[in-house]
Design a protein around this nucleic acid. Structure first.
Lengths: 243, 243
DNA sequence: CCCTTATATTTGGTCAGACCAAATTGGTCA
DNA sequence: TGACCAATTTGGTCTGACCAAATATAAGGG
């Protein structure tokens, strides 16, 4: 299932999957490097590199005497993608949490960007917005423009913490979502709504307004995605809807 | 400066520091593994493990033909701590961004916790709050109780995305802050304010209110920390203050 | 003189076998 | 039963080797 160019990556992915599937209890010891080497038909060096990666991901503690598995909750963001890809269909609650967080980050980004942007940057932004509003009916053609705008906003806002978190989330999730072929069918009206709100917020340079627009849009996306992910069963944890 | 139990960690830290100090341009090639091995007086295996870690941190791309340095912005949250610890005094803007994000995460956590908590959990929470309000004047003695409450809130809210981000931030930053001896002198009144607001929010089970209390408190902390970090010079990027 | 094409070198990926120090384990003895 | 000590296991590291792909270099043709 997982592409792995090198043996060590392959081993890493395999072990990570097992840990994420909770085949080891937290605190339990992993097989010794030598045993793992035998099992994967690889050298100890390769196994070692794999373990080194898992350690960076916060999944294991590798210390003299044995490799110990850590509880999932103490892992790194790096495990989110793999966690989503465990089954054919990702856990809806995780996807929802991701989208919520992503909306928040995006809100923070615009808000700050609108504060810091200079005149010409504002002009560029509004130019992008105009371009967007000309394609509201064609999702495919507006997607790259969206990307460009987000990239631009991120650059302006110059918030490394938000950026790094966003990086992780993006690479972790978007990859998985695309891989799983989950593309929420957004009504054209939703995109139009967002661009309209943003236009207004940009012209007034109202960061709060722009942030709110993003948040609202992402709530719509969340709903759309959830409708796809659990079309049958319900009765899950109720989700908040900030009025 | 940096504690490193193993040689490979040591090499990893050294190389990471150099990259974070921008001693290599993005896209530039790192010295070959063999050269690095000579330089660090280590085996290629050790170097390899170090590189493997840096790759996980998003700092390098390690591919046949050479190891290439990636731009800082495409790294992982794992670099935040090291970034803060580069100089004797951490970059104030990063610390501020961190605290802002931390406040937001905490707000999300309480909000959700108050939604999901059952009766006995609420009782426990309020019990902790009472304990806290009895120690508002003694920072040292209330700190563990705070930790316990946060841990408890996090467990209840059961939001893995927020939790993982929080993990990273915590381990990354708090470690550095403590190491650098930056302990903001919070007035007792601030802590009292927070506990009072939380008490009210808990009794009414008002998540928004509790979140707001945390945010407000963190804004106070941000100000306090900034006052420490840049006592002399000013003229930096103005920071937002959400009324 | 420039561009293309072979050739030699470098670089990462992996393996095998070895040694050390610390931790674990198991048995022994009080 | 419990404390103590030896044998084993485990991670940490090193050396030296081989392969395939990528890079750099030299050779050749226009």
């Amino acid at each position: 299932m997982s592409t792995a160019l090198t043996v060590s990556h392959e081993i890493g992915v395999a072990l990570r999957t097992e840990i994420l599937r909770r085949q080891y209890r937290p605190g339990e010891r992993l097989p010794s490097e030598r045993d793992l080497a035998v099992r994967f038909n690889a050298s100890r060096g390769a196994v070692r590199e794999a373990l080194s990666q898992l350690e960076q991901q916060g999944l294991i503690d590798i210390l003299p005497g044995g490799v110990r598995v850590k509880p999932l909750e103490s892992a790194t963001l790096a495990v989110l993608g793999p966690l989503l890809g465990l089954d054919e269909s990702p856990r809806p609650d995780l996807v929802d949490q991701f989208l919520e967080m992503f909306g928040i980050l995006m809100g923070l980004t615009v808000k700050r960007a609108l504060q810091l942007a200079n005149a010409e940057q504002m002009i560029h932004l509004q130019g992008l917005l105009v371009k967007l509003s000309q394609h509201t009916n064609d999702f495919e053609s507006m997607e790259p423009i969206w990307r460009e705008m987000l990239e631009y906003l991120t650059a302006i806002s110059d918030n490394l913490v938000v950026r790094l978190i966003g990086n992780d989330l993006k690479t972790q999730f978007l990859g998985q979502m695309l891989k799983l072929g989950i593309k929420p069918q957004l009504k054209a009206s939703a995109a139009a709504d967002l661009t309209r709100s943003l236009k207004q917020a940009f012209s007034k340079r109202d960061g709060e307004l722009a942030a709110a627009a993003f948040q609202k849009h992402f709530e719509y996306v969340r709903q759309a995605v959830l409708d796809i992910l659990k079309p049958q069963r319900s009765g899950e944890i109720p989700r908040a809807r900030h009025a």
